[in-house]
């Protein structure tokens, strides 16, 4: 149920993001989703890619600090109020969102939202019980 996200520490320096994108491109690694979080003088890029282990290994080799984190991909109806309906489930269950980011599926009526939540494993069970559609890793990667 959980999918692997890689995250990379970045100094706020010109061209760093490009270097990562280029590196992954050269390795034929496809980026499915990403988000960039930034503080005043550094940032963290979070990526869902089709070959997370390989991406992590290559980036480490280039000297980046890389983390692998488990996240969950939730299908959200791509219409007004869609996200709210999902968040309501979490709010009612008292689940805290550490961070989230969304991407829109090309071929369906749904959007995908990546969530990092407290106590991932337990929370996922709970969300499944509430009828939310949680995507498997291979579903996400084949999008």
């Amino acid at each position: 149920m959980l999918i692997k996200q890689i995250s990379v520490f970045l100094e706020n320096r010109a061209g760093r993001l490009f270097e990562i994108a280029e590196l992954l491109g050269n390795e034929n690694i496809n980026i499915r989703a990403l988000s960039l979080a930034d503080a005043s003088d550094f940032g963290v890029i979070r990526l869902i890619v089709d070959k997370p282990e390989k991406a992590a290994e290559r980036l480490k080799k280039e000297g980046f600090s890389v983390g692998l984190t488990s996240v969950v991909a939730v299908e959200v109806p791509d219409n007004p109020g869609g996200l709210a309906s999902v968040l309501k489930v979490m709010t009612d269950a008292g689940i805290n969102v550490e961070y989230m980011y969304a991407f829109v599926e090309k071929t369906s009526d749904n959007a995908i939202v990546i969530f990092r939540l407290e106590n991932m494993e337990k929370t996922v069970e709970l969300l499944l019980g509430k009828g939310l559609k949680i995507l498997q890793e291979k579903e996400v990667l084949s999008l």
């Binding site: 503080a39 963290v44 979070r46 600090s65 983390g67 550490e98």
Partner: peptide
């Protein structure tokens, strides 16, 4: 920032 202090949370 090395692996052991890196976090994906700002």
């Amino acid at each position: 920032v090395n692996e052991s202090i890196f976090s994906d949370e700002i």
